[in-house]
Design a protein around this nucleic acid. Structure first.
Length: 578
RNA sequence: GGGGACGUGGUCUAGGCUGGACUAGGACACCGGAUUGUCACUCCGGAGAUCGCGGGUUCAAAUCCCGUCGUCCCCGCCA
């Protein structure tokens, strides 16, 4: 008789004889009567053993096969989809025994340390929560492939054994046996290949692809991680890409978690994001927008403010709703926190029904503080935090305080799903030595309006690059690429790269650009992070079947491990003793 | 590379500041017994730990100190 799915049985199946197989989820031995909850991938159903002593010898996670007949239950269990029925067992076959478990697999929240969970990952993944996460991830991948296929994209695989690139993260290296002394590198992303594919005539490319970066780990970073990588030919206007991606993301949310997103997503230029939220990845689930009050305080009597403005700095204000009741000691703590965030200090003003309460009122006048509150959107019962200093420092510090205070005050709505595009990033930044370097990568196209500024004011040049931010997390990043040699050369010049150096570093892509490259651009999603957010998890390890620890080891397999001396000899490679 | 937290039977943890009656307590799991309507079954009984490892202080260390290993979090790093 063919095996049926445990989770599929319903009242209408009563009377049928069935064969089931699965894991012993739970066991309730009442003597002459034993209940077993049998679990397979489809769900759980209750088995009843009457006068079958073998059932009493079962234990959790044994694998069994049974034959029996489905019966309606006198007392249905409303917590189980199969709760109307049970299967009265006639024949029991034990397929495989389980040792006692290191931790229960029938709990939604893990009842073991993460270390133990990873060592016994095959058991941890049996938990319903982990099964849900694996299925959610599958749904997301499927939704991506279905949607992009419908939009004319094709998935093309690119090499995992490739060339080391000089910039970016540290590469994982793979010794090449056939070319002793030479190495492949695992790709940090398929960036050069995807641009090449578009130049090759694949006008719409995507790939769900593993990427490798040998850098230190975090809760949201693994040495190998998955990107949804995507590139479009004849793309010159980011808006075209935005609408494709908005359709895709809306489709993913609908299919994976049944949420309807509003499209289009708001677009916020980088400079505005830095000003209003103090970060390039703003959390838009709550207000508390930062206001620039430099002009307002330019001529007041508070030297800290006027001094900052006179030196080219700013005065900015963060409204904190309902926080006018904060005590002196709490405000003192905030001040200390601000000093830890590279601010000289932090001024504050409370707006209570009785009036304005602020240590700086005597310098600035209450009138001015009232105007400040009005401009910053702070009302009665609110607190206004004021920071003065260089624009970057003030922005970053207030941005950090904005997030911390919103968490503390419980202002962040769960499941709010605030998506936004951040656009017009700067094309260049200064590196540690004060030299001009690419913010994104050297193939990013400058904003057409800013091309005349390239040589004169390079740091003011905006890029045609963009990030997609969800609830304050950067989830995707991309750009329109340079497709013309002359512009590319100008950029290399600015970066201080000679023709030869550029060829050495980016070789084949440069050659491809010389043979008729269409305008193109694309984007890459951090798939693990996206799935993590959709799953409501706070670590990507919860949505990766076999993740690595913070020190890059795999507790299941013991990787990385020493290898046989013979394997090294073949490469040939020698390990230096410490 | 730097900072922080944690490490106690199979698992999760109490104890740790203030060293001594800690003979290391509890829960779950496990083993034995009872149990015919349970669904986190219940009840009775039992076994199981040199407190991550190494060193030090002390009459005495799970407890204090140093080192080391492992796990987690953060900064640097991640074009």
């Amino acid at each position: 008789m063919k095996r049926e799915a445990c989770g599929s049985l319903r009242g209408k199946d009563a009377g049928r004889r069935v064969t089931l197989a699965g894991w012993v989820h739970r066991l309730r031995d009442l003597g002459g009567l034993t209940f077993v909850d049998l679990r397979d991938a489809s769900g759980i159903v209750q088995l009843v053993f009457r006068d079958l002593p073998a059932a009493r010898k079962l234990s959790r996670e044994d694998v069994i096969r049974i034959q029996g007949s489905v019966a309606r239950r006198e007392a249905p269990n409303p917590d189980l989809p199969t709760g109307e029925v049970e299967v009265v067992v006639e024949r029991l076959e034990v397929l495989s025994r389980s040792k006692p478990l290191p931790f229960p697999v029938d709990a939604d929240e893990p009842r073991a340390s993460e270390e133990t969970r990873l060592r016994f990952r095959f058991l941890d993944l049996r938990r319903e929560k982990m099964q849900r996460n694996l299925r959610l991830r599958h749904k997301v991948s499927l939704a991506i492939r279905n949607y992009l296929n419908g939009q004319g994209f094709i998935e093309v695989e690119t090499p995992y054994l490739t060339r080391s690139t000089p910039e970016g993260a540290r590469d994982f290296l793979v010794p090449a046996r056939l070319e002793p002394g030479k190495f492949y590198a695992l790709p940090q992303s398929p960036q050069l290949f995807k641009q090449t594919l578009v130049i090759s005539g694949v006008e719409r490319y995507f790939q769900i692809v593993r990427c490798f970066r040998d850098e230190d780990l975090r809760a949201d970073r693994q040495p190998e991680f998955t990107q949804l990588d995507l590139e479009m030919g004849f793309l010159e206007d980011p808006d075209e890409l935005f609408s494709v991606i908005e359709g895709l993301v809306a489709h993913i949310f609908r299919e994976a978690i049944g949420v309807e997103l509003d499209v289009p997503f708001p677009r916020i230029p980088y400079a505005e994001a830095m000003l209003r939220y103090g970060t390039d990845k703003p959390d838009l689930r709550f207000g508390m927008e930062i206001a620039d009050l430099s002009d307002l305080f330019r001529d007041c009597d508070f030297r800290v403010f006027t001094g900052a403005v006179a030196e080219g700095g700013v005065v900015r204000a963060l409204p904190v709703p309902g926080a006018a009741g904060k005590s002196r000691s709490e405000l003192k703590k905030l001040e200390e926190r601000a000093k830890g965030l590279s601010l000289g200090g932090l001024a504050w003003a409370k707006f209570t029904p009785e009036g304005v309460n602020s240590p700086i009122a005597k310098f600035t006048s209450e009138e001015l503080l009232r105007k400040a509150a009005e401009e910053a959107g702070a009302g009665k019962g609110d607190l206004l935090l004021l920071a003065a200093g260089p624009a970057e420092a003030a922005a970053e510090a207030l941005g950090t305080l904005r997030l911390e205070l919103a968490h503390e005050l419980g202002l962040i709505r769960e499941n709010a799903w605030a998506l936004a595009w951040i656009t017009d990033f700067p094309l260049f930044k200064l590196d540690e030595e004060g030299r001009i370097a690419s913010e994104h990568h050297p193939f990013t196209s400058p904003h057409p309006d800013d091309i005349p500024l390239l040589e004169t004011e390079p740091l003011k040049v905006r890029a045609r690059s963009y990030d997609l931010v969800i609830d304050g997390v950067e989830i995707a990043s991309g750009s329109i690429r340079i497709h013309r040699r002359d512009l590319q050369e100008r950029i290399f010049n600015l970066l201080g790269l000679s023709e030869q150096e550029a060829r050495k570093k980016f070789g084949f892509l440069l050659r491809a650009l010389e043979y008729g490259a269409p305008p193109h651009g694309g984007i890459a999603f951090g798939l693990d992070r996206l799935v993590m957010m959709l799953a409501g998890e706070s670590s990507i390890r919860e949505v990766i079947a076999f993740p690595k620890t913070a020190s890059g080891t795999c507790l299941l397999t013991g990787a990385p491990a020493e290898v046989d001396p013979g394997q090294l000899a073949e490469l040939p490679l020698e390990v230096k003793p410490d």
